[in-house]
């Protein structure tokens, strides 16, 4: 791996006695797209704030672009782009003005900001809305404007905290497409998400986090290969019957997970498992065979699902 742009060793963040981030270590290479996958409250945003040099760590070592955030906050932040979980666009200013004002916080000359702002509006597909009020934009447009704003200083690293949470599927796909372009241009992307499809789409490599700890690390494919089977048979037996059905299915597949609303059978051949179900006398209300996903990895590692 080339010289990493971000290195964390035994990173800890405590609020009084509660460790929001508990001994986390990772390295991110330049140009890499790195994800933190975990449920709400796993400590993902706290890691992002520490990497973003706005939150002081309790202990451990952290280096961003070769600098210690405790000492070189402004230097680090001048080379980062940050897309926070909640949009904090300035609603008192118009769309383009948001970019102009934000560029000034980086000490950039006005003329340079103005031309960059127009390019970014184009990139974010907001050129027509340049003079609109921020509150009149849709959720997806606001997110794109926030990303455009984060790019005003041509950052080497873009930090994205839950970039598509709360967006409809179409808006998410537009956003993913824009992020993919940035990745192709060589921008390092660091993102948190609790959507496994987002992690699979965007991340070269990711860590699964839960309760402030890293549970596993790898590429999406390698994580699935090590922690799950190739296929999954999902069956619903109706509320109240799933636990019972789960007991009667012991011996099916490599492993069985019983969730409140369905039973999952992990196997290399889901169809084959499904064809054996009638022999047990059970009749699922619905059944589905699918490929294993990161959701299954998370379930295996923590015993819980990602989105609760």
């Amino acid at each position: 791996m080339p010289e990493p742009v971000i290195t964390a060793v035994n990173l800890v963040k405590k609020y009084k006695d509660f460790a929001a981030v508990d001994n986390v270590s990772f390295e991110i290479a330049p140009g890499e797209s790195f994800g933190f996958l975990g449920p709400n409250g796993a400590g993902k945003s706290t890691v992002m704030r520490m990497v973003g040099a706005v939150s002081t760590r309790t202990s451990g070592a952290l280096s961003v672009l070769g600098l210690d955030p405790d000492e070189y906050g402004p230097e680090i932040r001048s080379r980062l782009g940050v897309v926070p979980q909640a949009d904090n666009l300035d609603t008192e200013l118009r769309v383009r003005e948001n970019l102009l004002v934000y560029g000034r916080y980086f000490g950039l000359p006005r003329r340079q900001i103005a031309s960059r702002a127009d390019e970014l509006l184009e990139f974010a597909q907001l050129t027509e809305r340049a003079k609109a009020k921020v509150d009149d934009l849709s959720g997806g447009m606001k997110r794109r404007l926030t990303i455009a704003r984060a790019l005003i200083n041509e950052p080497r690293i873009l930090l994205l905290d839950e970039p598509t949470t709360g967006l409809d599927p179409q808006a998410r796909h537009i956003l993913w497409d824009r992020l993919f372009r940035l990745k192709e241009q060589g921008t390092t992307l660091v993102l948190t998400t609790h959507y496994m499809d987002e992690a699979e789409q965007l991340c070269d490599r990711l860590v699964v986090v839960d309760k402030g700890r890293i549970m596993a690390e790898g590429t999406p494919a390698s994580l699935i290969a090590s922690y799950s089977s190739r296929e999954v048979l999902e069956m619903r037996f109706g509320s109240g019957h799933n636990a019972d059905a789960g007991e009667r299915l012991v011996g099916f597949g490599d492993r069985i997970e019983v969730l409140p609303d369905r039973v999952l059978v992990y196997s290399s051949d889901g169809e084959a498992e499904l064809s054996r179900i009638p022999s047990t006398g059970l009749t699922p209300i619905t059944s589905l065979v699918r490929r294993s996903s990161l959701e299954d990895v998370f379930l295996r590692l923590t015993g819980r699902s990602l989105v609760e």
Partner: peptide, 24 residues
């Protein structure tokens, strides 16, 4: 980038950051 190196830019913000906020 014509605005100088990132370190030079950061030191400009260390000096003039308050004015940028006032501008806002």
């Amino acid at each position: 980038m014509s605005a100088g190196t990132p370190t030079a830019r950061a030191s400009r913000v260390r000096r003039f950051g308050s004015w940028y906020v006032a501008e806002h």
